[in-house]
């Protein structure tokens, strides 16, 4: 997008809209990512280790493996914390996904299963990728598949509420800047951005895969 209103700006805006309750899991997770706060991470560790352990026992019925899972999953929470923002749903569901996926990969490794598919292929979440709907490379690159992807996205777009459809059409399909789009749709810039964010989050959910 030839736009100064880069998608990354949106995601940092979303971050500044972080939950106000400083004891919420979301706040702690954003803190862990934003300022590498060991205090916030420690709180998350206290809250989640027994839940992750319980998940491990349910799936592996093995105490040692369940302890390993706590360590492995919480290490991933730490490493990926900067990638979390509110668009990605609750902290609970984000950590749940990490724990389930790590458990699955751990068990496959243990059983020496072929590594042709990993948990992240099976449960397509966008835990790893940036917040834009399309990868940056796809927007700028000359990928032939982009046209096809755009048409798939357009078909999902029809399932969104009308106002969200309109902003996505302006920004992602007609390639307008946020300012231009807001003016054309006669809505405040802030409204446009929040509709865009909601619409994109919903689209990602509908599509359910990394494009």
């Amino acid at each position: 997008m030839p736009d100064t209103d880069h998608p990354a700006v949106d995601s940092s805006n979303a971050r500044s809209l972080a939950p106000v309750d400083p004891d919420s899991d979301e706040y702690l997770l954003v803190e862990t990512g934003n300022s590498q706060s060991s205090k916030a991470f420690n709180r998350l560790f206290q809250r989640y280790s027994s839940k992750i352990y319980a998940m491990g026992m349910k799936l592996t019925r093995n105490e040692q493996l369940s302890k390993d899972l706590v360590q492995e999953a919480m290490l991933n929470v730490w490493r990926k914390a900067r990638l979390y923002d509110l668009d990605r749903g609750t902290a609970q569901s984000w950590i749940f996904t990490i724990a389930r996926n790590r458990c699955f990969d751990m068990l496959r490794k243990l059983k020496r299963q072929p590594n042709c598919v990993t948990a992240d292929d099976i449960w397509p979440q966008d835990n790893g990728s940036e917040s834009a709907l399309l990868p940056e490379g796809a927007l700028h690159g000359e990928q032939g598949s982009l046209v096809a992807e755009a048409s798939i996205i357009a078909s999902y777009c029809k399932q969104l509420p009308e106002p969200q459809q309109a902003v996505i059409e302006q920004v992602y399909i007609l390639d307008r800047t946020h300012d231009e789009a807001a003016e054309i749709l006669k809505i405040p810039l802030g409204t446009l951005k929040s509709r865009l964010r909601l619409g994109v989050a919903k689209l990602r959910q509908l599509i359910g895969i990394d494009l």
């Binding site: 990512g33 590498q36 360590q71 730490w78 990926k80 940036e130 490379g137």
Partner: peptide
């Protein structure tokens, strides 16, 4: 868990730019 936590936070965190497409 301070030992475990202290160990984990030695690891670098990922940023969006680190994630390969």
């Amino acid at each position: 868990f301070s030992d475990l936590v202290a160990n984990i936070i030695q690891h670098p965190q990922q940023s969006a730019a680190d994630i390969p497409l």
